[in-house]
Design a protein around this nucleic acid. Sequence first.
DNA 1: CCGCATTCATTGCACAGTCAACCAATGGCT
DNA 2: AGCCATTGGTTGACTGTGCAATGAATGCGG
Lengths: 137, 137
Amino acid sequence: MAVKTAESRLEERWRDILSVHARTMCEIDRVLHPHGLGASDFEVLDILASEAPGQGDQCRVQNLAGRVHLSQSALSRLIGRLEKDGLVERSVCAEDRRGVYVALTGKGRDLHTEVLPLQREVLARLLGGRAAAHGSS
Amino acid sequence: MAVKTAESRLEERWRDILSVHARTMCEIDRVLHPHGLGASDFEVLDILASEAPGQGDQCRVQNLAGRVHLSQSALSRLIGRLEKDGLVERSVCAEDRRGVYVALTGKGRDLHTEVLPLQREVLARLLGGRAAAHGSS
DNA sequence: CCGCATTCATTGCACAGTCAACCAATGGCT
DNA sequence: AGCCATTGGTTGACTGTGCAATGAATGCGG
């Protein structure tokens, strides 16, 4: 029966992850949406903002791809949208001319500063006390 | 500094959830794909299979909607696909004629039995020992 | 009994994401 | 130097999902 319990525990844990992930993701999306952002958009903005506090916060696309759980194509389109909204700027990398640097604009930085507390609040509210709710609901 | 730590811990925990979720989800998808299923498909099949071991494993759509983290529309389409593949069957609920019962077919049950160990194996492999991998890689 | 608000499920539309194909640039090899 | 395999990023076609609107059935209130 110990084996059975372990198996059940695993499944239970998976369901829990699924649940927490869905709830939190959805809530972040909901909070960020009025500002024209989705959860993935914020994640990229956040990485860009924290990666290089200075003005040279240039980051190669492949570097980003490693940090967010998105395919290169999704990331490319996402950056395209962000660029269209004037939040980031693309520039060719001089060293590797097939590489592309992505940098936050002032507007992008402002928006990030504005929405960061909102995201943090959601995290605190939904992930706050408990490490892994394993019982009901 | 305690405050700062708590905030960092929250964010770290969130990133961890994101990471584990993405990895596991992706792996389940990859393992199930050869059998023509996605992770969501399996989840519905799994609920249907475990919900009523007898032959009357009928389950209303709204009942399913509460257990999987999908919108009603997504669920409806998903059931549509499953039905098209002959894995489940829809039947109108006699009591509430606006409700729909969903039931596993023999084929659906067989497939579930076939792929269940695969999903379990992934869970064991990726969620296996550690509650929350917090270090490298 | 008839209308009206509510609930269950499905469908139209838009959007984000993946996979595969593609172009551009680089680096090694002959 | 010229060629070929490899890497970096973008684009096309397709799939899956959510929101909002719709159709159908129920139940309540006049």
